[in-house]
Amino acid sequence: MTSSIYLVLDMENDLVHADGPNGKAAYGEQVRGRRILENTRAALDKARAAKVPVGFVRVGFSPDYRECPPDSPIFSGARKNGIFQLGSWGTEVHPDLGQQAGDFDIVKHRVSPFYSTSLEAILRARGIRRIYCSGISTNAVVQATVREGHDRDYEIVVLEDCCCALSAEEHDGAIQGLRRFCRLTTSQDVVFE
C-alpha cells in the first residue's frame, strides 16, 4: 500500500465548468488560461499509473443549506445564488477529470478539507504520510490543505500548474506564502511515489 494520496480540491462544476456560474466569470478565465483541467487530468493519469490513490474534495451543502454559515464572506452567497448544493450537477467533479468509482470522495462545508470531514480518518486508516494536492482556489482550499496538513505532520506537495485563484496576482501571492510549508512541482515534473 502506498503512503501517498493525490487530493484534487474543489474541481467541481459550479467552480470550473464553462457552463457553471464561476466558470463563466474570473475563475473560468484562469482555469482556461492556465489549462487547469488539462494539467490536472495529466497529473491524475500519472498518479493512477503509479497506483497512488486519488481523493476528490468537494464543497457542498444540503438542499436546505443547513451547514452553510450565513455570515461567511466566502459562503454566504451560496444559498442566495443556489450553488454548491449537494446532489446537483454543480457539486459533481468536472467530467474531464475522469473520476472513478474507487476514488475517495470528501465533502466539506468550509474552506479546509480537514474540518468536519472524513479526510483525517481516510489518511490514518491508509497510513498516508504524503499528500499531493492541487485545485481551486490557491488562496483558499489549497492554502488550507497545505497549512493544516503541515501542522498534522504530513509531507505536502503542491502541483502549482494545477492551481489557480481569481487572478494571477492572487495565485502568485498564495504560492509565495506556501513555499515554506510544502514542496512545489508541476504536472509535468511530478513523480508520484
Rank of each mutant, 00 (worst) to 15 (best):
F61H: 14
V54K: 04
D45S: 10
V52R: 08
T40M: 06
D71M: 01
S62A: 15
G60W: 06
G60T: 11
A47T: 12
D71P: 00
D71I: 00
G55D: 08
A42E: 08
K46W: 07
R48M: 14
D45T: 11
A43D: 06
P69N: 07
A49M: 10
D45C: 04
T40R: 03
C68H: 07
D45A: 14
A50M: 11
G55F: 04
P69L: 06
S62E: 15
S72Y: 02
R66H: 13
R66A: 15
R41Y: 04
E67L: 09
F61N: 10
A43I: 04
P69W: 05
A49K: 15
S62H: 14
P73V: 00
A49Q: 15
D45K: 13
P63L: 09
S72W: 04
F61Y: 15
N39E: 05
D71F: 00
T40S: 10
S62K: 14
D71C: 00
D45W: 02
T40Q: 03
N39I: 02
A50E: 15
R41L: 10
A50N: 12
G55L: 08
V54R: 04
P70K: 00
C68L: 09
R58V: 15
P73T: 00
R41S: 08
D45H: 03
A49Y: 09
P73Q: 01
D45R: 10
P53I: 12
R41M: 04
R58W: 01
R48I: 13
P69C: 02
A42R: 14
G60E: 14
V54H: 03
S62N: 14
K51V: 06
A50W: 13
V59E: 14
A49P: 07
K46F: 06
F56C: 10
V54M: 05
P63H: 04
P73S: 01
D45I: 09
V52N: 12
K46S: 11
E67Y: 07
V57I: 15
P69Y: 04
V52T: 15
D64F: 07
A47Y: 10
P63E: 02
